[in-house]
Write a protein that binds this DNA or RNA. Structure first.
Lengths: 156, 156
DNA sequence: AGTAATAGACAACTTAGTTGTCCACCCCGA
DNA sequence: TCGGGGTGGACAACTAAGTTGTCTATTACT
C-alpha cells in the first residue's frame, strides 16, 4: 500500500515507462526500428493538422529549429514528406506518408493491446476508474509533449 | 472517457509531469533553486546506502561517469559531501549533508501535499485504488530511475 | 508602399548523458 | 607472496536532442 507523495509520482512514471518501453520493443519487433515516442507524437501532430515545421514546433512545445531536426529524421526514414506549399512560398508542407501511417497504426494497435493486458490484470471497472480519475486530476488536455528528451531516449 | 491505449500512456505521463512540475516550482519558491528530480533521487539513493559513486551509478542505472557528474553538481551545491573511505583507498565515501537532508525533507513534504490535493479532488478511496492498481500493474519495484534526461529537464 | 511578422536554413552552444582509456588499489588463488 | 583480474575513480572525446542567435525570403497589416 502506497501512501507517500513521492511514491505516487514514481508509480505514475513507472506506469508510463512500462507501457512505452514495451511499445518501443514491440514496434521494433514488427520491423520499425528506431521509432521513439517523440516520432510517433510528431507524426500524429502532422496528421492532425500541423502543416509546416513551425506549427509542428508549437504543437510539440519545442522551437522550430528543434522541430526541424525531428522532421529531418522522419523524412530520412520515409515517414514524412515535404513539398512546396502552393499558398506560401516560404513554407514547406508536411505530410505523413503511407509508411508513416503504417507506423502510426501499428503503434496504436500495440498500445491498445497493452491496455487490454492491463484490463485483464485489474478488471475493466478498475481501469476505467483509473483513467477517469487521472483525467480529472490531469485536466482535459493531458497531451503535453514537452518532454522530448526523455521521450526520445533509447530504451534500455 | 478515455478508451485508447496511447491516451492511457499520455494520462500517466501527464499525471507524473503535473506532480513533478509543481514540486520543482514549489521547491524553488522555498529557496532551493535548480533542484531537479534526478538530484532528489540521487540523494535518496545515497542516503539509502549508495556509499560511493560507482554504486550510485548502478542504483540510478547510469554509468559511473554519469553518476560522477551528478555527484559533482550535488557537491558543488553543498547537498552531498565526499570523504576518503578508510576501508578502501580507491573509493570516496558519499554522504548527504544536513542541507541535503533539508532539501529531501522539503521535497517529501511538497509531494505529500500534492497527494493530499489529489485526495481531496477524487476522494481517498479512489486515490487508494489508483495507487493500488498501479502498484499491481507496475510491479513491486516502481523505482526505476533510468530516465535522467527527462528528470533533469528544466521545468517550462 | 512600408513595416512588422513568419517560414525556414545554418551555425554555435548547452545539457546530460555516453564510450574509451588510464591508473591505483583491492582481493583471491596458486 | 605475488600476480592477475576486477573495481573505484579521473580525464577526455563523443553523442543526442534540444537550445539561442542570426540570416534570407516571403507574406500580412495598415
Amino acid at each position: 500500500m502506497t501512501r507517500s507523495g513521492p511514491d505516487l509520482a514514481l508509480l505514475l512514471l513507472g506506469g508510463f515507462r512500462s507501457l512505452v518501453d514495451q511499445a518501443v520493443v514491440e514496434l521494433e519487433a514488427r520491423g520499425f526500428a528506431d521509432v521513439r515516442p517523440v516520432h510517433d507524437f510528431a507524426m500524429r501532430a502532422i496528421a492532425a493538422g500541423a502543416g509546416n515545421t513551425s506549427e509542428l514546433g508549437r504543437r510539440l512545445a519545442v522551437t522550430k529549429q528543434g522541430a526541424a531536426k525531428i522532421v529531418a529524421v522522419l523524412e530520412e526514414r520515409g515517414y514524412v514528406a515535404r513539398e512546396a506549399d502552393p499558398e506560401d512560398a516560404r513554407a514547406k508542407r508536411l505530410l505523413v506518408t503511407p509508411l508513416g501511417f503504417e507506423v502510426l497504426g501499428q503503434g496504436e494497435e500495440i498500445f491498445d493491446g497493452l491496455r487490454r493486458q492491463w484490463e485483464q490484470q485489474i478488471g475493466r471497472d478498475q481501469l476505467d476508474a483509473l483513467e477517469q480519475n487521472l483525467h480529472v486530476l490531469v485536466g482535459d488536455s493531458p497531451i503535453r509533449l514537452d518532454t522530448p528528451g526523455w521521450l526520445a531516449r533509447e530504451v534500455g
